[in-house]
Amino acid sequence: MISLQSVTKEYETPAGMFSALRDINVEVRKGEFVAVVGKSGSGKSTLLNMVGGIDRPSSGTVAVAGTEIHSLSESQLALWRGRTVGFVFQFFQLLPTLTGAENVMLPMDFCRTFPARERRQRALELLERVGVAQQADKLPSSLSGGEQQRVAIARALANNPPVVLADEPTGNLDSVTAGAVIDLFRQMAKSGTTVVIASHERDIARVSDRTVEVVDGTIVGIATDPYAAPEAEDCA
């Protein structure tokens, strides 16, 4: 589903060239739940950005769901992203002037993936799935952090993408809520969606199929959870 070959990423900074990623090679299968762990600034977010087409590699290739995304133009990339990748951010990033349901409908509006009449119904179903159907018509400002993140997850699933990327999705949540959110990702992976989560919390390794550890832009280790992996393969 996801294939990164010899990916490097360098940024020009006033202090000279900075290598955010060095020679990264990763393969992720369909329905796999992968955790990218590392300290702040290690390059895990950059890795996620490469997969989501938010950033382009300085060298190497990135293929997601059969598309070599480094070859797409900006507008092709936007459309591709909308249909193929669902994003979940640390600070939820809901649009403040849209209600929960509307936030979920927005990717469908952008990508025209479902008939206009069905979009709200689908949004409500997704909100139901993540347990915040009651909050559908409320503005983000009146939701708790956990509720906002659930709406954000529903939004990530709006276009039924094969891949969901989450950057520190529990970083702003209490431990109970964080656990519930992680469960949602687990369920997603079970139902066949490829999930990649970046986190600096090592606990995530316990629930993921595989853990990729990044230090200073390099992958230093890949650990496989012996109990979770066969399940993922079943789904694939």
């Binding site: 938010i54 900006e74 992203r81 649009l95 927005l106 952008f110 990508c111």
Partner: peptide, 16 residues
């Protein structure tokens, strides 16, 4: 700016 980034991340093109 951030909202624009999010909209782009969830599939909005520049023109949209």
């Amino acid at each position: 700016v951030r909202q624009i980034g999010v909209m782009k991340a969830i599939g909005g093109t520049r023109w949209q």
